[in-house]
Simulated assay, not measured.
Amino acid sequence: MLPSPRPACTSSWSPRPRASLGIISPWNSPIVLTVRPIGPALGAGCTVVVKSPGQTALTNA
């Protein structure tokens, strides 16, 4: 709840994602190149969808 300039009213605000980000990880460096764009996207309020490569099953576990 947010304070309202009018005495008898209340205001509310709820964050909504602005966009979605799709990340397709490469097989040669899946962790570094996947984690780098996730922080700024989540900080901006975006949703993140990650597709990990099938060739790196031990890293994805």
Rank of each mutant, 00 (worst) to 15 (best):
36 R>T: 14
30 P>K: 07
61 A>C: 05
61 A>Y: 00
32 V>W: 14
33 L>R: 01
50 V>K: 08
12 S>M: 07
4 S>A: 00
5 P>N: 03
39 G>K: 11
9 C>R: 00
2 L>Q: 02
33 L>M: 06
55 Q>V: 10
26 P>G: 09
33 L>Y: 05
15 P>W: 02
56 T>F: 08
51 K>T: 10
27 W>V: 12
1 M>S: 04
44 A>H: 05
53 P>C: 13
36 R>G: 12
24 I>M: 13
26 P>D: 15
46 C>E: 14
26 P>R: 07
57 A>V: 01
9 C>S: 06
57 A>R: 04
42 L>W: 14
36 R>P: 11
26 P>N: 09
14 S>K: 02
51 K>S: 14
46 C>Y: 14
48 V>Q: 10
11 S>R: 02
10 T>F: 15
11 S>Y: 02
42 L>H: 12
25 S>V: 13
20 S>H: 04
35 V>H: 08
44 A>M: 10
5 P>K: 03
50 V>R: 10
18 R>M: 02
31 I>K: 05
6 R>E: 00
39 G>A: 13
19 A>Y: 10
35 V>P: 05
3 P>R: 03
34 T>C: 05
35 V>D: 10
10 T>W: 10
53 P>V: 10
54 G>K: 05
40 P>Q: 08
44 A>R: 08
1 M>D: 10
51 K>H: 14
30 P>T: 11
19 A>K: 07
37 P>L: 08
11 S>F: 00
41 A>P: 06
36 R>Y: 15
61 A>K: 01
28 N>V: 01
5 P>W: 01
30 P>W: 06
4 S>F: 03
53 P>F: 07
6 R>N: 01
56 T>C: 08
50 V>L: 08
42 L>A: 12
20 S>W: 04
16 R>L: 03
24 I>V: 11
44 A>D: 08
1 M>K: 02
22 G>W: 09
12 S>G: 08
3 P>K: 01
11 S>C: 04
38 I>P: 10
8 A>Q: 12
6 R>P: 14
53 P>I: 09
29 S>T: 04
41 A>W: 10
12 S>Y: 05
60 N>T: 12
